[in-house]
Design a protein around this nucleic acid. Sequence first.
DNA 1: GGGGGGTTACGTACACCGTACGTACCCTTC
DNA 2: GAAGGGTACGTACGGTGTACGTAACCCCCC
Lengths: 215, 215
Amino acid sequence: MRSEPLSRARIVAAAIDLIEREGADAISMRRIAAELGVGVMSLYNHVPGKDALLNGVAEAVLSEIEFTDDPDAHWTDRVRMQARAFRQIAHHHPRSTMLVVSRQLHSAAGLLPVERALATLRGAGFDGPEAVRMLRMFIAFIVGSLLREVGVTPTFAPVQTRTIKAEGVDPALFPEVSALAPLLGQCDHEAEFDFGVELLIQAMQVHSGRKEGTR
Amino acid sequence: MRSEPLSRARIVAAAIDLIEREGADAISMRRIAAELGVGVMSLYNHVPGKDALLNGVAEAVLSEIEFTDDPDAHWTDRVRMQARAFRQIAHHHPRSTMLVVSRQLHSAAGLLPVERALATLRGAGFDGPEAVRMLRMFIAFIVGSLLREVGVTPTFAPVQTRTIKAEGVDPALFPEVSALAPLLGQCDHEAEFDFGVELLIQAMQVHSGRKEGTR
DNA sequence: GGGGGGTTACGTACACCGTACGTACCCTTC
DNA sequence: GAAGGGTACGTACGGTGTACGTAACCCCCC
């Protein structure tokens, strides 16, 4: 009964803290309870179960994004800003990113970014179906990028620093890979992300320009 | 001692089978052993542990991809083909896709697609750093797309069929979302994927064209 | 033929997990 | 004071991954 009386918010905060300190695998109801100095089952008075708790974590992280949207800016700049804002979660809560990205949220916290994005895209002149398509495309890119950045999913690309450096790759079997090993082994996540964003924005501009005439 | 004598390959196959039948969460050493009709600890004679087993699953699924690469085709077509081939895993082994995409493989199975992709990009005239960048960009997009398609990660975009349909979204708070609800609620994964691929290819063409002159 | 060594199968045991259930306490409202 | 609801918590159950010890088997070498 020491301190304030335990609440969903405190539990979620403790969970985030624990994840960032010891990794997403280390999380368990018992650990969280211990962290808060309470019994395990006390948690269940404020949270339906572990799954709901993790959803809470994802929402909390997601709603920390600072969207500083400037409605007067050119739509390309607004898209840039939103993409960067989203990427910030990978910096503020790197080890929780996987949760945000791999959980489907049905709450307002998840809807807000979508709303903003759709608004800018519509403002840029895209019609409904186009806007949705562009958004999905962007989300896929961002999700994939964050997963790479966060360490999960270097699905072979930037990963094999170890493989490559450790035993080397057979140049006969994988000439390109072994030739480009130094490049593959390192990755400036910010630069890669920005590059991708610019490429996508260019593509979107082309797409929109084409629509309204030969331009 | 019945049947053939248990092997890493048989174990991995059983694991894949189990995952596809009952979902990735249902998997456990005990279940797999039961499936094979052997004791739990027998598995450890062929596999170092669960984590390694899951890596094996990812590799197996990944190496099932059929890359029918035509070196004479235009590079854009080759990129298209490779992207589609990769996406096939989401069809052949939907519930294992998450594993493939969220695990960093240090084996040849993971290197092969990279080698192919780099080769075609280099063939298209991109220099080393460009090729690596383009590849990373593409991987991010594909990973994100597959995660969405597989059900994990509809991180708010196509998901809220339920949210939207069930209780409706407040049109005052989320005007765009509620206006586009019907579009957000449905998703032709193949069409979305192809759209993204085309957009990326176009962007890459622009990028390459710009490089070698004003064109 | 008779060891003997290495591989394989397996049972038991341990530490940990999520959580259903029952119990004790406090605080409010009659 | 009594009643009732919310909160904290202990215990217990069925599950997990895997370390360890034991027994059977095969094959090779003597």
